[in-house]
Write a protein that binds this DNA or RNA. Structure first.
Lengths: 215, 215
DNA sequence: CTCCATCAGTACCGTACGGTACGGTTCGCC
DNA sequence: GGCGAACCGTACCGTACGGTACTGATGGAG
């Protein structure tokens, strides 16, 4: 398990070796299990069977490690593009419901919650560098998927809206409401994931009532 | 400035002396300015011109101090009850818009953001005690105001909804969308507060399109 | 075989924090 | 005036963390 390593982690051209990816995986596990206080350099080194010196060599700094964790996690989540098939009303609704349910499941994920908590905790100092990173890598991705979907709906004459951002904001708000914040605050999400499908359908129906062309 | 102190802080029956309230005020200032890392016992003692010993005597613990800060801040924010006047459509809309704008302004407040960041940062460990406290003291309050408003609208035949919680969730989502999270992540709210009025109106119009009786 | 780069493991250092203990001072009360 | 309670300021202690330096082992390159 030593010597020069040349194989790189696939995807995103992240420039990380597999070893470094495994280290980041362990770091994410520590973060999810114990929060930011559990994410110490010594702890990561112990959990990943590597030396602290290597951590500093690879990531330069503790903040570098945090940034690498966010980038690494984002590189693993790839949003599938919406197929450019011809949309009818039922198809659009199905796509929207699927998007809404995916959104809820992503936001409720362990790693997502832990990384959001981490970035929020560091938002006060350091100019919210992690926050911007998280927003760029996470939100922008899912926003693009939604934007493409909404645009396709408008092209097909099924949706009517002036500002796509406003329509997306309404969809996001109807789907998520204050759930994300409540989960971030630690509210037990036990069993609530069962209702995500129903919740997604209700939100999409409301969205279509607002922006659909044939009510 | 010493000796037995008997005067108590008004409201909420908090059982805090004025001195202790002033200390909590300074603690909140430190938290707002520098985040959780700046909120050290020594720092609070220095900023408030008190001794660490007194801090531990009054609040018992660092977590006790944090809890007291949340309770103290919540005791200062009192939501005005909606007047039980007869509502017409324009009046209901005005009330809803005022509520929405107040909600945005509260969520965008310095102290609110700092306390939410604090509670979220501690959500991983400690069983999210602070999160539950924050939710109970903050969210429940504003939720009651909204609930009363919605109920008044239904009584007046201006709103139609089956589940009041669901209607409130839709209103909240349309008003806030992902703004709260973005502000928690550190996105610069500079100048955005100017748009709160316009944003509130748009959200309320959408809400009324969904739940209003005469579209 | 020999050199060299990489890495794990550990010891180490400076610092900062939570929490406690102590001396000195002010104030109310008898 | 004297007593006691509350309190400030500071010193102190144990601990834990970020970051660095050193040692020894491993495996590839010439």
């Amino acid at each position: 398990m030593q010597g020069v390593e040349t194989t790189r982690v696939a995807g995103a051209g992240s420039g990380l070796t597999e070893r470094q990816g495994a280290v980041l995986e362990q770091a994410l596990r520590l973060l999810v299990d114990g929060g930011e206080r559990a994410l110490t350099t010594a702890g990561v080194a112990r959990a990943a069977n590597c030396s602290k010196e290597s951590l500093y060599k690879w990531f330069g700094d503790r903040d570098g490690l945090l940034s690498a964790m966010i980038a690494f996690q984002a590189s693993k989540v790839r949003t599938l593009d919406v197929s450019a098939e011809a949309l009818d009303a039922a198809g659009l609704r199905a796509h929207l419901v699927a998007f809404a349910e995916d959104l809820l499941n992503v936001l409720a994920g362990d790693v997502s919650l832990a990384l959001n908590r981490l970035a929020i905790g560091q938002a006060s100092r350091e100019g919210s560098k992690l926050g911007r990173l998280l927003e760029e890598r996470g939100r922008r991705q899912i926003g693009r998927r939604a934007g493409a979907l909404l645009e396709a709906g408008r092209k097909a004459g099924l949706l009517a809206f002036g500002d796509a951002d406003e329509a997306y904001g309404a969809l996001y708000g109807l789907v998520v409401s204050d759930w994300h914040l409540r989960m971030l605050l630690g509210e037990d999400p036990g069993g609530l994931k069962k209702n995500f499908g129903r919740r997604a359908e209700r939100a999409v129906d409301a969205f279509l009532a607002l922006y659909g062309r044939k009510g």
